[in-house]
């Protein structure tokens, strides 16, 4: 299926064109992105696969408004993102983007419910914290603090926190990186369910090739460039993954 065929079926959420990113580390320039063109469509589940240092996190950070590219443009929902305007990017993250990180980044002083409320209190049209937590299967752990939960549970709270504001996109950077396989599968299952039920465009970064099987599309990264894009004819359920 070509891009134009995708166009017919779904709206384009992100259009990245000619993205470059150069880090200056003292005297040395590191080219993290060397001209990346990529489109992401509404409601799809995309896996970015590639070795560490291949540029996938950099792309994710730029799409999420956490970082600015050295060159190129990103259009979101048809409008160009002004990536170097901190106030606008804060607003953009607050309204449109959900993040999930490898190390959960929960606020230890807040309970599961409150960690989610942290976001719903500043969002425009959020679901209730209880609903968000129910979606990730944690309705019975509402009043637990992070210290009282396992890593998998903490990551599910992080997912609930990310989706509670009903974001257009959910950006996940190695969401299973700190988890064992069995727990990782449960977390991925939650991500798939959210994607299916809420229609949130979901991007998952991983270097675990097994996970690619559950995606609509897989974007292969290497040396700061998109090497190829594959579409899975048939998606596997997360529960069928093993590593």
């Amino acid at each position: 299926m070509t891009d134009s065929e995708q166009d017919a079926g779904a709206r384009r959420i992100f259009e990245a064109r000619g993205l470059t990113k150069i880090y200056r580390m003292g005297e040395v320039e590191v080219h993290a992105l060397r001209g990346v063109d990529v489109d992401l469509y509404a409601g799809e589940f995309v896996v970015l696969l590639g070795p560490s240092g291949s540029g996938k996190s950099t792309l994710l950070n730029i799409l999420g408004g956490l970082d600015t590219p050295s060159g190129g443009t990103v259009r979101y929902a048809g409008r160009e993102l002004i990536l170097n305007d901190d106030t606008r990017m804060t607003q953009y993250r607050r309204t449109h983007v959900g993040f999930v990180f490898q190390f959960y980044n929960l606020i230890p002083s807040l309970t599961a419910r409150e960690n989610v409320a942290l976001v719903t209190e500043i969002a425009v049209n959020p679901m209730t914290p209880e609903e968000a937590l129910a979606r990730v299967g944690l309705e019975s752990r509402l009043d637990h603090f992070p210290a009282q939960m396992s890593g998998g549970e903490q990551q599910r709270v992080a997912i609930a926190r990310a989706v509670a504001k009903r974001p257009q996109v959910l950006l996940c950077d190695e969401p299973t990186g700190a988890l064992d396989a069995q727990t990782g599968v449960r977390v991925l299952d939650v991500l798939a369910r959210v994607n299916r039920e809420l229609g949130t465009t979901t991007v998952v970064i991983t270097h675990n090739a097994v996970i690619a099987a559950m995606a609509d599309r897989v974007v292969y990264f290497g040396d700061g460039q998109v090497v190829r894009i594959e579409k899975n004819a048939e998606k596997k359920s997360a529960m069928d993954l093993h590593w």
């Binding site: 999420g64 956490l66 106030t87 804060t90 607003q91 953009y92 993250r93 607050r94 309204t95 983007v97 993040f99 990180f101 980044n105 929960l106 606020i107 230890p108 942290l118 976001v119 500043i122 969002a123 926190r161």
Partner: peptide, 11 residues
């Protein structure tokens, strides 16, 4: 913790 909040959209 504060950076996490910034990512979540806190000003």
């Amino acid at each position: 913790e504060l950076a996490s909040l910034r990512v979540l959209g806190f000003t």
